[in-house]
């Protein structure tokens, strides 16, 4: 598929991809709106505020998503929580991406050493990584940057494994052979020939990582680790409403959980869309 190597400009590519995958387009739109709203939109109530006179109201005209046990407005809190939840998820993803790609490239040789390293990664991934992440953040005294580190801890091995397998198979291909034959330096081969070709799958993994990070952060704050009150986060709101689920007040945990599910769906859809495109261009 040599015509596709000279792909159209990025913007055109992007638009075409979103048209073919309405789910991904909707997802991206949802995330953007949520992010902008959390940053700039005037919220109907103070997200940190409580109102002892209006506790456990069900969703309605006055409080769109109802109120929690302390009288906090669920709608304002769900929107506001996107700030800390999404930015932590993105920070964790960027760290995983950078460290994972660099280490993955370094591990992409065919020697014994790199095979041992992969075996070591197997052993590391045998850890109950979520438990390990929880322990790290909790033992360090709930520092927010440790949440970012914990996300990287879980996701860096995935990036490494992916990059290694992809680079190892690409190295067999004709154009790398050709580049080597023309005397290109290893650095040129890596940056001009290998990286542009693994970019697609790296992007897919990045999108999946954001989704994973959102779940990890929600799990952490569901347990009271990481983001601490009164700052609203989706996980801690689910925790607040967990007990109410068996007494019928579903909206406290429900809307926060819905926000998590929609964000994860959005990034999964985006990953699918990028994956489809990548598959068509390179294979």
């Amino acid at each position: 598929m040599h015509d596709d190597v000279f792909a159209p400009r990025r913007g055109v590519q992007m638009r075409r991809m979103l048209r073919q995958h309405p789910g991904a387009a909707l997802g991206v739109l949802f995330i953007l709106v949520l992010l902008l709203a959390s940053l700039f939109a005037p919220l109907p109530y103070d997200p940190m505020g409580i109102d002892g006179g209006a506790t456990l109201r069900s969703p309605g005209g006055e409080h769109w998503f109802g109120t929690d046990g302390a009288g906090g407005d669920i709608f304002s809190r769900v929107i506001y929580a996107a700030r800390v939840d999404l930015s932590l998820a993105l920070a964790g993803t960027v760290l995983s991406l950078v460290v994972g790609v660099l280490l993955g490239l370094a591990a992409s040789s065919k020697g014994k050493g790199s095979e041992r390293l992969v075996r070591g990664l197997d052993a590391f991934q045998a850890f109950p990584l979520l438990i390990l992440a929880l322990a790290l953040v909790s033992l360090s005294g709930n520092k927010l940057y440790m949440v970012v580190v914990a996300i990287a801890l879980i996701n860096v091995p995935r990036f490494m494994r992916l990059l290694r397998s992809e680079v190892l198979s690409l190295r067999e291909s004709r154009f790398i052979e050709a580049a080597t034959a023309t005397g290109a330096s290893p650095r040129r081969i890596i940056f001009r020939h290998l990286l542009p070709n693994v970019w697609g799958i790296v992007l897919v993994q990045t999108s999946l990582t954001v989704a994973n990070a959102i779940v990890v952060i929600a799990s952490l704050s569901f347990l009271g680790i990481g983001v601490s009150p009164p700052t609203p986060s989706w996980g801690s709101m689910i925790r607040d409403g967990a007990g109410n689920m068996s007494s019928g007040e579903w909206w406290i945990a429900g809307f926060a959980g819905l926000a998590v599910v929609l964000c994860v769906l959005a990034f999964n859809q985006l990953a699918d869309a990028i994956g489809d495109r990548t598959a068509r261009t390179y294979r």
Partner: peptide, 22 residues
């Protein structure tokens, strides 16, 4: 599959408690 992959397990547990128990 898409939907169930996107739901965190603990939240699905809470939803089931609400629907099946309550």
């Amino acid at each position: 599959t898409g939907v169930f992959q996107a739901i965190p397990d603990f939240f699905l547990g809470l939803l089931l408690i609400y629907v099946v128990f309550f």
